[in-house]
Simulated assay, not measured.
Amino acid sequence: MPRSIKKKEKKLGIKQKLLFEELQEKIGITFTDESMLIQAFTHSSYVNEHRIKPSEDNERLEFLGDAVLELTVSQFLFKNYPSMTEGDLTKLRAAIVCEPSLVNFAHQLSFGTYVLLGKGEELTGGRERPALLADVFEAFIGALYLDQGLDKVVGFLEKVVYPKISEGAFSHVMDYKSQLQEIVQRNGQGSIEYLIVQEKGPAHNREFVSKVTLNAEILGLGVGKSKKEAEQKAAQQALEKLKSEKQK
């Protein structure tokens, strides 16, 4: 074991060691190299205060974890949203891996409890600081990847992140047509079709009426200043109809 890691472990009290054991039990993952897990939760303020090598904080793991998250989330979206365009996939991925989302995931797992902080950072509320929590989540992903590989990372995300996507937690960044398409495909309900059924008004102030059908049954109607807007509103109405039917 590297001398710097040994130093770090000597600095850990019994309470801190027990906390890392508790964390592994909570997430259902036992690290082969526990020092990797400890490093993921080691903030630079702790390193500076305890005179550990700067390379022993979690910043390099954060860099790696960011890339691993981008890859694994991209793979999930690519497989599960086959009708979504490249632009929409990019927007959705950005919403999933952005700081506020990572903070929510970190809170969900109480990651703030386990961070090793310097006294100054602790006193100024660092344990709850959003940027710090997002960094810790990324560092944890990086550490898990190095310790146990990509499949283990995917297994972890299948419990923590992917269900949130499937439940629609990020649907605000998906357009209504994409959402409707994914629901219909996921449930194997058939095929949807959009049709402009009416155009009205003068050329400079045109309005379009669109209908969306599922297996020839009208699901929604929408009115807009463009065909695209009318189709989006028709899809929105269709989603509301499907949602209300599901709740019955």
Rank of each mutant, 00 (worst) to 15 (best):
F170T: 05
E34F: 06
Y46M: 05
H107Y: 07
F105N: 02
M174V: 09
K15A: 04
K159G: 09
Y81E: 02
K177T: 14
S191P: 00
D57W: 11
I29H: 04
V212M: 05
I196T: 13
L242H: 03
Q148W: 00
D135H: 15
L89Q: 12
L92C: 05
G13S: 11
K227M: 00
E49S: 09
K79M: 09
S110P: 00
V223R: 14
F105R: 03
E9I: 15
M1Q: 09
Y145R: 10
T72N: 13
E167T: 13
S110Y: 14
V197F: 04
L19T: 01
K243R: 14
G149I: 11
M84P: 01
E193M: 07
Y145M: 09
A131P: 00
D57E: 04
L64H: 04
F20S: 02
T213A: 11
D33P: 00
K233T: 07
N187V: 06
R206Q: 15
L150A: 04
E245Q: 15
E138F: 00
K53A: 14
Q16D: 06
F31E: 03
S226H: 01
L77V: 12
R60C: 02
V184H: 11
I38M: 10
F140N: 04
F41N: 03
Q247C: 01
E22I: 07
E25V: 09
V68F: 03
F105T: 02
Q16T: 13
L195D: 14
L144T: 05
K200V: 13
F137D: 09
E25P: 00
M36D: 11
K91T: 05
R51Y: 02
K152M: 15
V73N: 07
A169Q: 14
G126I: 05
M84N: 03
A203R: 13
M36I: 12
S74Q: 09
V209C: 08
T90I: 07
L37R: 02
S44I: 12
K53N: 10
E138W: 00
I141R: 04
G112M: 05
